[in-house]
Design a protein around this nucleic acid. Sequence first.
DNA 1: TTGTAAGCGTTATCAG
DNA 2: CTGATAACGCTTACAA
Lengths: 344, 344
Amino acid sequence: MKERTVTIYDISEKAGVSIATVSRVLNNSSNVSDNTRKKVMAAIKETGYTPNAFARGLGLNTMKTIGILTADSSDLYLAKAIYYFEEELRANGYDSLLCCTGYELKDKKAAIDLLISKKVDGIIFVGSHFVYPDACDNKYIINASEKVPVMLLNAEVEGDNIYCVSSDDHDSVYRATRKLVESGFRDVLYFYNANSYSAHLKERGFRDAMEDSGIKVTERQFQYFDGSNEDVHGMSSQLEKTASAGLKFSAVVASDDTLALSAVKYAQSRGYKLPEEFAVIGYNNSMLTNCCDPEITSIDNKVETLCKHLTSILMGVLSGEEMPKKTVFKGEIVEKGTTRLKKD
Amino acid sequence: MKERTVTIYDISEKAGVSIATVSRVLNNSSNVSDNTRKKVMAAIKETGYTPNAFARGLGLNTMKTIGILTADSSDLYLAKAIYYFEEELRANGYDSLLCCTGYELKDKKAAIDLLISKKVDGIIFVGSHFVYPDACDNKYIINASEKVPVMLLNAEVEGDNIYCVSSDDHDSVYRATRKLVESGFRDVLYFYNANSYSAHLKERGFRDAMEDSGIKVTERQFQYFDGSNEDVHGMSSQLEKTASAGLKFSAVVASDDTLALSAVKYAQSRGYKLPEEFAVIGYNNSMLTNCCDPEITSIDNKVETLCKHLTSILMGVLSGEEMPKKTVFKGEIVEKGTTRLKKD
DNA sequence: TTGTAAGCGTTATCAG
DNA sequence: CTGATAACGCTTACAA
């Protein structure tokens, strides 16, 4: 009882023209007389015809789809990025094929193969988790770039068909840390939870800032949290343990707002007054920074801007234009209640 | 200089067999001799051949893709759902085409048309925002279901090809509210920010619970927050205004954890002690409930379970099995620090 | 301006 | 077990 789906042939017949003509009006292409166009349109409207995307894809060798690759689409920051990408891409006539890979290298590779086999027009790597410190481990990105343009958000890999858009993480953390020190906090703990490309930049920023401030740091001041990105509990109890173990710190620079939030909870559970006795700086300026009292000073890395630029670069690449291989934006320190930084 | 992509013909030639045979080993289908299979495999490996997905799609009339429709993929709850869907779908060999529609009806319609024109095998409506109180406004969902199976998460629409999976929002809020009242709070404010299908169920649950507790409610007790889902600030200041305007309330039942969090901030800014003098119950049991101190009692509606079931129902539908049109799970009240509910 | 016909790369039916 | 060959529905030279 399934009525045959209407094809371009049905339209051509109904309108009394050839399928070529139908195709032409469909792609509102070159020279079709107003009259025939009208006839074709009428037939289309009447039948409710829509072109078969697969056939189209086969002919054009594209279905206007971009693969979006991310470790965890439910992560606060990544979710935002995905949202902006989807929006921008669709505005440009592209669909988004989403692939969440988790954090295992082999799953990432598998996901890429999958995307490429589905013949996406490009792949956006959302988040720095895809780039490893050891260059060999990034070979899989290069491989992908031999098939389709590869876009990296918040990461950097050298390659012919690879384009990188990022925020200057090193600079942001550097500036924030220096200001923090200048405002009187010298025993600062660095709290992080990733070993990705941008994670390293941030850490480097912290180290450099401390050094340039003339403060020696010990490795104990670098606290790595190895757990779920949502485990605020675990995070603050790690700080608690660290403190109980004898490490003194009265400020925390965190690589992520969740960590920062846990630092606020830690400080408040100890009865420290923020920002007088204890200071906290987060990263991403996400809604989490507004979820506690005082609200958290955080670094805004302009994810919307990054996503828009990245998309427009991708669009340029896809239409054969020459595009910048590396684009870097400057982050912004958004001061709220957990610090009292010196003004510039 | 672009080398022609290798096709099934190249493989057939290299292996000295027909393309039909190559196709057979590709789909590891019926009866191919071990010997020829080996030859073909060798040729495939040698050339790095991968089948053209578009051609395949054209032949099979499917590219194994599911459209995921959501108002805002960066919303904490929706993002989680999307994550689980993507994971489950991929485990079943399906890809996810993501479409974020925003909250305008016409954009929703456009997105659906788009998904259908891309010939997805089914559409998952993530979140109750797609279902309107006025049945006429839901016609577009019925329309979609005439083309592909439609799956609704946390919503309900009657239709031939429509399948609904949800948590019993009414029951959850009802039980939570009753317990709250039993624990001594009678002047409870209901705080919500949506007019969707499930929003109505929740509100109904609250009303019924109050009524069954013998408490009269006035419309002022129903506070609708009309703003961004991330604007914790705006939310708590609305509560502040409401209180200043003279409404007395010492407890808040919120339709969402963000609202609940804002209630905690409000209560704390007024110096109320939670849970003794002020109680709060949220919804979704998201990470936000752990972001303040005390942590927030919240209703867990088991999004992971819902998503898994929904996906498996969809898979059943796609393979022609008879599947339940409506599946309802029970939510769980997860008690934390903002209440001291009576035990059952 | 319009039509003809040759792809595009598979899968599937039917013979052998 | 294997091979021809006809779909699948569209785009696009090339002709007219």
